[in-house]
C-alpha cells in the first residue's frame, strides 16, 4: 500500500505548480551555458519547494540568483526555489534564473526543449522555447 502510494507520487506533477512563459534567450551556437526564464505559480494551498531542475538536452541545470553588489555582477547557486501557497515567482534576466549547462546540441530561435522541475518526489514538465532577447 505504501509502495503503491510512493509510485503514484513519483509520477505525479508538483501539486499546484503552473509554469508559464518559459523561454531561453538565444545564445551563440558555441555557448556552454544558456539561461532559462519562466513565470512560476503555486495554485495550491501548500508551500512548494523546487529542489532540482533537469532536462535531457543539458548536462545539468542549476538555479541561480544574479545580483549587483557594489558595482559587481554576482551569480550565486540557489539550493532551491520556494513558492508560498498561492504565490508566484518570476525567473527573469538580472534576477533568479536557470543556468542550463552543456547543451547537447546548438539551439536556434524557435527550438523547444523540455525541462523537469522537481519538488521532492513529484515533478512537473515545462516546455521552454528559444527566442531572441528583447534589445
Amino acid at each position: 500500500m505504501l509502495a503503491c502510494a510512493s509510485i503514484g507520487r513519483a509520477a505525479a506533477d508538483c501539486t499546484g505548480l503552473r509554469i508559464e512563459q518559459a523561454w531561453i534567450p538565444q545564445a551563440p551556437p558555441v555557448a556552454a551555458v544558456l539561461g532559462g526564464y519562466a513565470s512560476l505559480f503555486n495554485d495550491g494551498g501548500t508551500a512548494l519547494h523546487i529542489d532540482a531542475v533537469d532536462g535531457a538536452d543539458f548536462g545539468g541545470v542549476e538555479m541561480h540568483q544574479m545580483s549587483m553588489e557594489g558595482g559587481m555582477m554576482q551569480m550565486r547557486p540557489l539550493p532551491g526555489l520556494d513558492l508560498p501557497p498561492r504565490g508566484s515567482l518570476v525567473l527573469a534576466e538580472g534576477g533568479k534564473h536557470l543556468m542550463l549547462m552543456n547543451p547537447k546540441h546548438p539551439f536556434k530561435a524557435g527550438d523547444a526543449t523540455a525541462l523537469r522541475f522537481h519538488c521532492g518526489r513529484q515533478s512537473t514538465l515545462a516546455t521552454f522555447t528559444v527566442r531572441a532577447p528583447a534589445p
Binding site: A27, P28, L100, P135
Partner: peptide, 19 residues
C-alpha cells in the same frame, strides 16, 4: 568585462551592445 559561461547578464549585455 565578462565571461562566456555566464548565462544571464553577459549575453544580454552583448546583445544590447549589438543594438
Amino acid at each position: 568585462v565578462g565571461y562566456t559561461h555566464c548565462p544571464d547578464v553577459c549575453p544580454t549585455t552583448l546583445a544590447q551592445l549589438k543594438a
